[in-house]
Computed example of a mutant assay.
Amino acid sequence: MHVRAYLRASTKDQDANRARDDLFRFTEERGLKIAASYVENESGASLKRPELFRLLNDCHPGDVLLVEQVDRLSRLNAEDWERLKTEIQNRRVKVVALDLPTSWMMATAGKDDIQSRMLDAINGMMLDMLAAIARKDYEDRRRRQAQGIAKAKADGAYKGRPEDEQRNAGIVKMLESGMSWNTIVAATSCSRSTLARLAKRVSGKTAS
């Protein structure tokens, strides 16, 4: 059995490694070692998480997928959560989360004993519940954010996200040097709408 730690944060501004010490402490207290850590900055509401699926591809039956909180694994809608859960179950991977005490014994339970099967059933139900709560929290926060933006727009106070001036200056230089849009998007991960806006800025400078 190998323990594989999954560390996720939603944005590049957050630190996905923040929980690493807690995960290592958890395994050390139980005489276990983390075989590998998989770190990524992706939304828990999306299944497009290459590091999570690389972890699952590396797993053998009986391996442990260790996370700090269930919402690090899933803020998925019901359909996508079922798809991910099926993938985990088909690979016979045990999910252990620090915020789900019923899962802790999964890290040390035997592979085929009756206790392990009972824990697996209980843990599955708890995972479903916490995944649903995490999704609701995600949707509530998105709704409150949208309401706040709508109110700010109505009050004339909404200014949008602040411009990343340093990045945009670099993109402008790339445009002025004749680099293709595809190359710029690949290099900077900016959206094509942002690129179009900056291209108009460049064309305006040229016209003047």
Rank of each mutant, 00 (worst) to 15 (best):
A5P: 10
N77V: 01
M106T: 05
E40P: 06
Q14E: 14
I171G: 01
L98N: 07
Q115R: 09
A146G: 05
A19D: 12
S10P: 08
D137I: 05
C190I: 15
V185I: 14
E82M: 13
E68W: 09
A131E: 00
A9V: 12
Q89V: 11
N182K: 14
A19K: 06
D99Q: 07
L73A: 09
I34F: 05
S43M: 07
H60T: 14
V172G: 01
T183I: 02
G156N: 09
M118Q: 02
E40D: 10
G124F: 03
R141N: 04
A45C: 03
R54Y: 13
S189C: 11
K85A: 13
T188P: 00
D155R: 13
V67M: 06
R192V: 12
P162D: 07
G204Q: 03
R30G: 02
R91W: 10
R144I: 04
R8P: 06
Q145N: 13
R8K: 00
R144K: 14
A150Q: 10
D99Y: 02
V95K: 07
R143Q: 12
T194Y: 05
F53A: 02
N90S: 14
C59S: 15
N77Q: 11
A154N: 01
R4D: 01
R192N: 12
A187Y: 08
S180V: 04
R144H: 06
K151H: 10
R142G: 06
I34P: 02
Y138W: 10
M129A: 14
A121K: 09
R25E: 15
N41W: 00
G156M: 06
F53I: 03
K151M: 13
E29K: 15
A134Y: 05
M129D: 03
K94Q: 11
A45H: 04
A36K: 15
S10M: 04
R20V: 09
R135N: 02
W81A: 00
R135L: 00
A157N: 14
L23D: 06
R197Q: 07
E29R: 15
R18Q: 15
A36R: 15
S208L: 10
D15P: 03
S203M: 11
P61G: 06
R49T: 03
Q115T: 15
L32V: 02
P50M: 03
G110E: 12
R4H: 12
G44D: 00
R30I: 07
R92G: 00
S180E: 07
A16L: 04
L84Q: 03
V172D: 01
Y38R: 07
D13C: 02
W81M: 00
A154Q: 15
L175H: 06
E165W: 05
A154G: 01
A199C: 10
E176L: 12
S103V: 03
L32S: 08
Q69M: 12
R25L: 14
L195T: 10
M105Q: 14
I149C: 04
A134P: 04
P61Q: 05
G170K: 10
V96W: 04
A121I: 09
G156P: 03
A35V: 11
D113K: 08
E163C: 00
K173S: 13
R161C: 08
A5W: 09
L130F: 00
H60W: 09
A196Q: 13
S193Q: 11
V172P: 01
G62N: 04
V67D: 04
M118N: 08
V172Q: 09
T206A: 13
Y6R: 05
K12E: 13
A199K: 15
L47Q: 01
S10K: 11
G148E: 04
